[in-house]
């Protein structure tokens, strides 16, 4: 009883934000945008091929990196975030590896590499999009580092992070973005 109640209260605040976008004639911004700096934890995660990935090293790059938090059996939010990734890859044309898209599971309990792989295939993911799992503690550390800790995967929020290769700062996007908005934000972070 109590759990749905608390969730309901949390929700009503958030739902107002999302509904404002739907109802408003003046089309207020559909997402929130801030610039942040994050300290990346030194943890070892596992990708869709079962390979170990030292998380920190993903960001030693001159390419833009995009990060989001999803999971294999998630409803509503993840499908839309992932459709956004797939769409961006389509826009990138043949060289999809120009941008590194990283999805991190917030359900490491269930998300084995095999599940990650199947998920990527479902979205026709091309090279350049990796999906990471790991131990729950390590995933918690990553979520905390991005100030995106969800106590439970059901309290999940639509967040996307774009790392600028210029100065290592992050654009933090909160909300569900249109394709145009995403590409736009993405260009601001340094894609040509």
């Amino acid at each position: 009883m109590i759990i749905p109640l608390v969730r309901a209260l949390l929700l009503s605040a958030a739902a107002t934000l999302l509904l404002a976008a739907a109802a408003g004639a003046a089309e207020p911004a559909r997402y929130q945008r801030t610039i942040e700096r994050y300290t990346i934890p030194d943890v070892v995660l596992i990708n869709q091929d079962g390979e170990k990935v030292r998380f920190k090293t993903l960001f030693d790059t001159q390419q833009p990196v995009v990060v989001d938090f999803i999971y294999g059996t998630c409803t509503t939010i993840c499908p839309i975030l992932s459709a956004g990734y797939a769409n961006l890859q389509r826009k990138l044309g043949t060289d999809t590896t120009r941008v590194h898209l990283v999805s991190i599971t917030i359900d490491p309990e269930n998300d084995t590499p095999a599940i990650l792989k199947k998920y990527l295939a479902q979205y026709s993911a091309k090279p350049g999009w990796d999906f990471l799992t790991g131990s729950r503690k390590d995933i918690d550390r990553v979520m905390n580092a991005f100030d995106a800790y969800f106590r439970d995967k059901m309290d999940h929020k639509p967040l996307t992070f774009i790392r600028s290769p210029k100065d290592g700062s992050w654009i933090r996007l909160y909300g569900l973005l249109s394709g145009v908005d995403f590409l736009d934000e993405y260009k601001k972070a340094g894609l040509q």
Partner: peptide, 20 residues
């Protein structure tokens, strides 16, 4: 189309993915 202009195939997700 989802989020305005993002095309999506039913095989990526469909009604059941959200309405269960």
């Amino acid at each position: 189309f989802v989020s305005d202009d993002v095309p999506v195939d039913g095989t990526a997700f469909t009604c059941v993915s959200c309405h269960l």
